[in-house]
Design a binder for these strands. Sequence first.
DNA 1: CGATCATGATGCCGATAAGGTATGGATGCG
DNA 2: CGCATCCATACCTTATCGGCATCATGATCG
Lengths: 291, 291
Amino acid sequence: MIDIRQMRYFVALAETLHFGRAAERLRMSQPPLSRQIASLEAELGVRLLERHSRQASLTFAGQRFLEDCRTTIAAFDQACENARMADRGELGELSIGFMMSSAYTVLPALARRFTAKHPRVALRLRELLPPDLEEAVKSGRFDAGIMFDVGGVGGLEARVIHREALCLAAPSDHPLALKVEIAPEDLGGVPLIIAPAETTPSLREAITGFCRRGGFEPTARLEAQLQQTIVSLVSEGLGVAVTPSSMRKLGVANVVYRDLVDAPQIEHVVAWRPANLNPALRLFLAEAGAG
Amino acid sequence: MIDIRQMRYFVALAETLHFGRAAERLRMSQPPLSRQIASLEAELGVRLLERHSRQASLTFAGQRFLEDCRTTIAAFDQACENARMADRGELGELSIGFMMSSAYTVLPALARRFTAKHPRVALRLRELLPPDLEEAVKSGRFDAGIMFDVGGVGGLEARVIHREALCLAAPSDHPLALKVEIAPEDLGGVPLIIAPAETTPSLREAITGFCRRGGFEPTARLEAQLQQTIVSLVSEGLGVAVTPSSMRKLGVANVVYRDLVDAPQIEHVVAWRPANLNPALRLFLAEAGAG
DNA sequence: CGATCATGATGCCGATAAGGTATGGATGCG
DNA sequence: CGCATCCATACCTTATCGGCATCATGATCG
């Protein structure tokens, strides 16, 4: 049966048109090369070279075969190389789900670093609501997810890759806007716009913890899942919210942000299934500082 | 060394995910397949399959390698098939030079038939003036030329593939336009527009032969190389011409065509170098009826 | 014009690799 | 716990490959 080795022999021969020198280049002696070429021609049923006494020349079929051999060999070598790259995680796809909040913090720089370092990994980024995200990573639809800490929930491994302080977002004409820094007790009795506990439990917990330092439980005036939505509702004067500092970047009109006294921090984590075998995931985790 | 056979083995295995059944499909027993795959993995340095007790599964690298193997194998098989086709002349290029006159007669149908029958031969058609054409075929710049008979000139083989009668082309207000049929003696003393003898010797010979039957030598009023140019000069009233009947198709205004008594015929031949090894040439000659 | 050289083909041998059969080891199932 | 399934391993036989020596052929040169 014809194989790729015979193609390599033929290419060397076609490039030198000389059995002896081709054999030398192939680090073999001339007789086996002659035989391999003869067997190649026999199996193809096609004469590839005209042997003249001075030097050989390619037939028309041989010229065509030479071109095709070059592309075939290139495809072959590329296939092997690609397998090795894919094994190292440097070639392939990596799908990352993330919550909107991460798009304002860790994600942009991380994605930029990763694609710069591993240009042949197609990074598929998709934003999801936090609860869907956790489910999607667990089910394997995403290789990893970037979200607020999920509290070590079942099946997923997670590492903190970013921390940010919470702050107060208030309408600019709100009384709290007059203060430079907000203490827990300042929020006593002030209804908050807040994300539901199911959506972002760790954020809820951080807010609750802050309020408790003021001796009260937070009361929700409105609930919305996305922090952007919450800030937007604040800008409409519907209430105040405790939200990650990165929301300041939004630049929504009529909203002022105020630091909290001993501000609680919220953690962004990258979470993945330990059973996930995508080699690119390891590289991504390393890049995220979650090795 | 990795070879194409191992790729075929791997594809069969990847498609069944079962060593036993893959081996069966490959008409071999299971142990050598196991070993070939193991050796493939070892040489790549990449694990391609996860072996579970129930059934195997592809790793990420294996999935990638599967795709690449398929394209590589396809390229490989195509290369072999192309060599065979090129050898039969059914794949490749064929360059044909032709004189303008043939574009009105043999060439269109011949080119149509040939490309229909051998769609993968790229037919390069190019018109040339007859003297250039002969030279171009001799030098190998064209695989074949279609021209008026060159009288068995050195080095080229030629076969007649078309014959056509000559006719008289005259301005519509010329006295000869009144006659239904032109006898040789009718042209006595009438100056002709004619192609130079170097350009188309056989045409010149035919015209001379016709005139001699009337007992005189033709006199040239004007010379032009292309028959179309000659007919065009006729239409401008600059004289009459003896020209191939196919020129009637030109539809030039103010020109009438008249049959000649016992009209001499001019032969279109296909000419080629006997040493030309382009296999497609044989198919072309066969199609031209010049086998 | 014959000797010589260059080049590819052929004969033969040892090493390597491939495939076959028999069997072992691990895992899941009744 | 025994059995069935499935892949890996051991061992043997055969095929293939590459090396060395040599031959056949055609060009080159004295």
